[in-house]
């Protein structure tokens, strides 16, 4: 897409968004200071100011124009419903403002409040500015997850039909088969997961991708949890384990909680906020699951690239990076890595 095409797409969105804002906030509502965050083939994100009289709010517009047939992500409509639920339950998220409707002629999507801060893992893990946030991270992350997993799962029953809610292992297996590659390491992972299944784990609303990179942080704390596209009903230990994957430690391998700190304060904070005990054995199970899943997500990016749906050198690299997550999977499975 050249710069001219991009500009015309943005102009079109802004014109329709202007009308969508007036419909909801009145004729006086204005739209200013538009910046483009991403303008992908299927997802677009713009930032803008909603101006009402003398007040001005920075908002984020997220739009899905095309749904990939093999997508592992829930619909924007379900994402928005999840945001509303968790926001009501004091999980820090960008405040949901409104959902797009057919009358807006802007495809599927929503508008949420913009939260200032940093998301890049390497900056968060290494910059002096985030020292305080780093120190508090395990306790904060444990507390947020504890709070999230206390939400009555009946409120998120609309997620029950998603493949990840029905059977997370079968969901991964089906995606893996769709991409048509042979991976003996992932077969070992699947076999181990199938022969070590937890008996009827506790089931609740889980984020599904709670990790360094999907959190907006300020110098002192976590400000918002982003990217609820993988939300589903599942074992709370799945979320707890995902944050401890070696892949999010970015070189700080001895700090198991996303490279920030230790597991014990994280687990203790979770138990305090949630009321249920952390099951360490089940966490190990979900870490193995996590490596399998992360490898398959990278194969998905490769598939998007080589099929021509989403050409990108970065996605090409993802395909080859799968080997690293297989390595971490096996090293964890045989106990060399923790």
């Amino acid at each position: 897409m050249d710069k001219q095409q991009q500009a015309s797409i943005v102009d079109d969105i802004v014109a329709r968004l202007r009308i969508a804002l007036k419909r909801r906030f009145g004729e006086q509502a204005g739209l200013e200071n538009v910046t483009v965050a991403t303008l992908g083939g299927s997802n677009r994100t713009l930032l803008f100011d909603l101006v009402e009289g003398t007040t001005r709010r920075r908002l984020v517009f997220r739009q899905e124009t095309y749904r990939l047939p093999d997508t592992p992500f829930i619909s924007p409509h379900d994402q928005y419903r999840v945001l509303e639920i968790v926001n009501r339950h004091h999980v820090p998220v960008p405040e949901p403002i409104f959902e797009l409707e057919d009358a807006d002629e802007l495809d599927r999507g929503y508008v949420v409040a913009c939260v200032d801060g940093e998301t890049l893992p390497r900056r968060l893990l290494n910059d002096r500015a985030f020292a305080a946030a780093r120190a508090g991270f395990p306790v904060e992350a444990g507390t947020i997850l504890g709070r999230l997993h206390r939400i009555d799962s009946a409120l998120a029953e609309f997620l029950a039909p998603t493949p990840d809610s029905i059977d997370p292992i079968a969901a991964q297996r089906s995606r893996y088969e769709h991409y048509g590659e042979e991976h003996p390491a992932l077969e070992l992972g699947f076999r181990w997961l199938e022969t070590h299944r937890a008996k009827a784990p506790r089931r609740c609303l889980v984020h599904g991708d709670f990790r360094n990179g999907n959190l907006i942080m300020g110098p002192d704390r976590i400000r918002a949890v982003l990217d609820w596209e993988c939300a589903h009903l599942g074992s709370p230990m799945e979320d707890l384990a995902w944050l401890c994957l070696r892949s999010w430690r970015f070189g700080h391998v001895d700090k198991h909680v996303a490279g920030f700190g230790d597991r014990e304060p994280y687990y203790a904070a979770y138990e305090k906020a949630n009321g249920h005990a952390v099951d360490r054995e089940e966490i190990f199970y979900w870490e193995i699951f996590g490596f399998v899943r992360w490898a398959i997500l990278n194969i998905m990016q490769r598939h998007g690239h080589t099929s021509g749906e989403r050409r990108s050198a970065a996605f090409a690299a993802c395909g080859r990076n799968t080997a690293m997550y297989e390595y971490d999977l096996l090293m964890t499975l045989i106990g060399h890595y923790t």
Binding site: P184, L188, R191, M324, Y327
Partner: peptide, 28 residues
Amino acid sequence: IRSGECDQRWDEAVALVMDQVVGKVKVT
């Protein structure tokens, strides 16, 4: 591996696959 045929030779299978994966990471 999928059919369970390797279950009786699990450690041997893991060592074999580890070797393959190391070979891939040496390139990546």
